[in-house]
Measured scan of single mutants.
Amino acid sequence: MAEQVALSRTQVCGILREELFQGDAFHQSDTHIFIIMGASGDLAKKKIYPTIWWLFRDGLLPENTFIVGYARSRLTVADIRKQSEPFFKATPEEKLKLEDFFARNSYVAGQYDDAASYQRLNSHMNALHLGSQANRLFYLALPPTVYEAVTKNIHESCMSQIGWNRIIVEKPFGRDLQSSDRLSNHISSLFREDQIYRIDHYLGKEMVQNLMVLRFANRIFGPIWNRDNIACVILTFKEPFGTEGRGGYFDEFGIIRDVMQNHLLQMLCLVAMEKPASTNSDDVRDEKVKVLKCISEVQANNVVLGQYVGNPDGEGEATKGYLDDPTVPRGSTTATFAAVVLYVENERWDGVPFILRCGKALNERKAEVRLQFHDVAGDIFHQQCKRNELVIRVQPNEAVYTKMMTKKPGMFFNPEESELDLTYGNRYKNVKLPDAYERLILDVFCGSQMHFVRSDELREAWRIFTPLLHQIELEKPKPIPYIYGSRGPTEADELMKRVGFQYEGTYKWVNP
Rank of each mutant, 00 (worst) to 15 (best):
E3I: 06
H201Y: 01
W54N: 10
A134T: 15
C232T: 12
L96N: 14
I36A: 01
A109N: 13
G14W: 11
W225T: 01
L211Q: 07
L61G: 02
H124N: 11
I36R: 03
Y249T: 02
Y139G: 03
R81C: 08
S180N: 11
C13A: 11
A149V: 12
N153K: 14
P144Y: 00
I220C: 11
E239L: 03
V150C: 12
V146L: 11
G245L: 11
A149R: 15
T10Y: 12
D30G: 10
I33E: 07
V108S: 07
V150N: 06
L7G: 08
I234Q: 15
E94H: 12
I255F: 05
S180M: 01
E206M: 08
V213Y: 09
P144W: 03
G242L: 02
E63S: 10
E244G: 09
T65I: 13
L121G: 01
D113T: 11
S132M: 15
F216N: 01
A6W: 13
L61W: 06
M207N: 10
S132D: 12
M212P: 05
S179W: 02
N165S: 10
K46T: 02
F221A: 08
W54M: 10
K95Y: 11
L214H: 07
T76G: 09
M207D: 00
I234G: 07
V77N: 14
N64W: 06
G248L: 05
I224T: 12
S123M: 13
R182N: 15
N122D: 13
G242D: 05
V208K: 03
L55K: 00
H32P: 07
T31C: 13
I256Q: 05
L20I: 10
L20F: 09
Q111M: 10
L7V: 10
Y139Q: 06
R192Y: 13
Q111F: 11
R17A: 15
P144I: 03
H27N: 15
D176P: 02
K205W: 00
I80P: 01
A90G: 08
R192H: 12
R198A: 05
E85R: 06
D200I: 01
A231R: 11
L61I: 12
P144G: 02
P86D: 09
L140Q: 04
G59H: 07
L7N: 14
R72W: 01
F250M: 00
E252C: 10
Q28V: 10
D200M: 01
R246A: 03
R136F: 10
H155N: 15
A44G: 04
M37S: 02
F221L: 14
S179L: 04
E94V: 06
P144M: 02
R72V: 02
T31M: 12
G23F: 14
L214K: 07
A217E: 00
S189Y: 10
A141V: 00
K45W: 05
G247T: 06
A115E: 13
N153G: 13
R246K: 00
Q11G: 12
I187G: 00
M212R: 05
P62D: 05
H27F: 12
A115P: 09
D30K: 15
T10R: 15
I33A: 09
E19M: 10
F87K: 06
K45L: 07
Q161F: 13
A116W: 11
K82L: 13
R182P: 01
F253C: 08
E19I: 14
V108W: 07
N105Y: 09
Y112C: 03
G23C: 11
D79F: 06
F138N: 03
A141N: 04
G242Y: 07
I48K: 00
K46G: 01
K47L: 06
S123V: 14
I230Y: 00
H201I: 03
Q11R: 11
H155C: 11
S106L: 12
I224H: 06
N165H: 11
A231D: 07
L20W: 06
E99W: 04
I36N: 03
W54G: 09
P144F: 02
N229A: 09
G41V: 06
P62G: 09
G38N: 03
V169T: 06
G38H: 00
N229R: 02
M37Q: 04
Y107M: 10
V77I: 15
F191C: 05
K89T: 08
I35D: 04
L43N: 00
N165A: 11
N64M: 08
Y112V: 03
H186K: 14
L60A: 06
L16Q: 12
E63Q: 12
Y118E: 00
W54P: 03
D181Y: 06
S160E: 11
M207P: 04
I48R: 01
I199M: 08
E148R: 12
N185H: 13
A90E: 06
S84W: 08
M159W: 10
A90T: 15
W225Q: 03
L142K: 07
F87A: 08
D251T: 06
Y49V: 05
Q83D: 13
R219Y: 06
H32L: 05
S179N: 04
D200H: 02
N64I: 05
D251S: 07
D251L: 01
D42N: 05
R215H: 00
Q195H: 08
A39T: 01
G131M: 09
R74L: 13
T243Y: 06
Q111W: 10
D113E: 11
V108E: 07
D114G: 11
D194K: 12
E156M: 13
F250H: 02
D30M: 08
A25S: 15
W164I: 10
T243L: 09
M37A: 12
V233P: 05
S117Y: 12
N210G: 08
D176L: 00
I220N: 00
